[in-house]
């Protein structure tokens, strides 16, 4: 029996005549860091808002922490919305305590924990500063702390890295990993692949309102074949390589580049070495998440290519 903190099937949401989310399925196991990736307007935020019960889906079902009514478990969830919002007249400590109190934490504990978390984030000097006097990045960190101050089981962060400078982005990555070590499940959306690649255990890629991929980072990268770059001995022309490398091979420096399936690496290397054209250069490149994302999202934009996607059920 799985221990999923989120279980959603067939989520659909229309805004007027616009289909924002179309049949998205998401399952998130307890204790994982789960990324929801997608380009702008893909439906990530709408999906998150449906998962949290902020808006109701037009169809589909979801359970959050085992409850079909997300409202019933809201005290066990932390949420950082995409559009950051704090009361400008509040001090940072009050804002954190208020956000904790909304989720059932008593005010005093909220203030105390908030001070500790602020110090951990290097913000102890602005604990009693009003939000309106803070930089955008600082206020964002305050809000993030406010969303985890009650030590929730599930933390949902919508585009948490946007608006943060590199130092704070690194701090946030550290905070995500700390919360994971505490036992929390973290779900976050982003369209910056580097963060997802570093911290996500699993991820879903949403494009055009539909889920196009679900799996680990490695599985996502595995949706693309390896790229082999081969440079023969000097003087060997393209015509001499006919039959050895694919017709689709493209020039790359002083050699040729083409894709091969993972399973074919060894035979290919043997063939190239045995061909008699020499090996001036040889490299095998594993595509990054960025490449996989671009291909998956790009394929989603091209209807005729959907059938080629590895996760066919997502293309329906």
């Amino acid at each position: 029996m799985t221990d999923n903190v989120i279980e959603a099937t067939g989520l659909v949401k229309y805004f007027g005549g616009f289909r924002a989310v179309n049949g998205v399925d998401i399952s998130v196991e307890r204790g994982l860091v789960y990324g929801i990736l997608g380009p702008n307007g893909a439906g990530k935020t709408t999906t998150i808002r449906m998962l949290l019960g902020i808006i109701e889906p037009d169809s589909g079902a979801r359970t959050l922490l085992g409850s079909s009514n997300p409202r019933d478990v809201s005290d066990r969830v932390g949420y950082l919305p995409e559009e950051r919002g704090l009361y400008p007249g509040m001090k940072a400590s009050e804002a954190i305590a208020f956000m904790g109190a909304l989720r059932g934490l008593d005010w005093r504990t909220g203030r105390d924990r908030g001070a500790v978390l602020m110090a951990a984030a290097g913000l102890e000097r602005v604990v009693d500063e009003k939000i309106r006097k803070m930089s955008k990045g600082m206020a964002q960190m305050v809000q993030l702390i406010g969303s985890i101050v009650h030590q929730p089981e599930l933390i949902v962060l919508d585009e948490p890295f946007s608006g943060l400078d590199p130092v704070n982005q690194e701090r946030l990555e550290g905070l995500i990993m700390t919360e994971r070590e505490r036992g929390a499940t973290i779900v976050f959306s982003t369209h910056v692949m580097s963060h997802a690649e570093r911290v996500c255990d699993r991820l879903a890629i949403i494009a055009n309102a539909e889920r196009r991929f679900e799996g680990t980072v490695a599985e996502a990268r595995g949706t693309l074949p390896l790229r082999l770059r081969y440079a023969p001995s000097p003087g060997v022309g393209r015509a001499e390589l006919d039959g050895l490398i694919p017709d689709a091979a493209t020039p790359s420096g002083d050699g040729w580049s083409f894709t091969i399936p993972d399973a074919d690496v060894a035979p290919w290397l043997s063939r190239l070495v045995a061909s008699g054209h020499g090996v001036a250069g040889l490299s095998i490149e594993r595509p990054g998440l960025h490449d996989a994302f671009v291909r998956i999202v790009g394929a989603a934009d091209a209807p005729e290519a959907k059938a080629d996607l590895p996760n066919k059920e997502a293309a329906q």
Partner: peptide, 17 residues
């Protein structure tokens, strides 16, 4: 208007009915 203006409404709507 305050909550809508400073986007706190999203936090409130997610946390409490």
């Amino acid at each position: 208007a305050e909550e809508k203006g400073n986007k706190v409404i999203e936090i409130l709507a997610a946390a409490v009915p």
